[in-house]
């Protein structure tokens, strides 16, 4: 019973943290381009590399 008093609020707080993060991501437009985001990580940004070379 004592453990519940601590653990239940902790569990809820962690859940709310996740929900807050999700709502933030949604508002920040991170769900706008799911197809693009899935492939984007496969590619390196080459702009910097090219600037150094030229």
């Amino acid at each position: 019973m004592d453990a519940l008093i601590l653990l239940v609020p902790v569990a809820l707080a962690l859940g709310l943290l996740g929900l807050g993060g999700f709502l933030w991501a949604l508002r920040a437009g991170q769900y706008e381009d799911l197809d693009g985001a899935a492939t984007r990580i496969l590619f390196d940004d080459q702009t910097a590399e090219r600037t150094n070379r030229s």
Binding site: E32, D33, G36, T39, R40, F43, T47
Partner: peptide
């Protein structure tokens, strides 16, 4: 059509000196 196309377009445009940002969305 594909992630590589997005990458190519963004990289090619980012190389333009006066371009501040170029962002392509594959879904839309």
């Amino acid at each position: 059509r594909c992630g590589a196309c997005v990458w190519l377009v963004e990289q090619a445009l980012a190389a333009e000196p006066d371009m501040l940002s170029a962002r392509a969305a594959l879904t839309t």
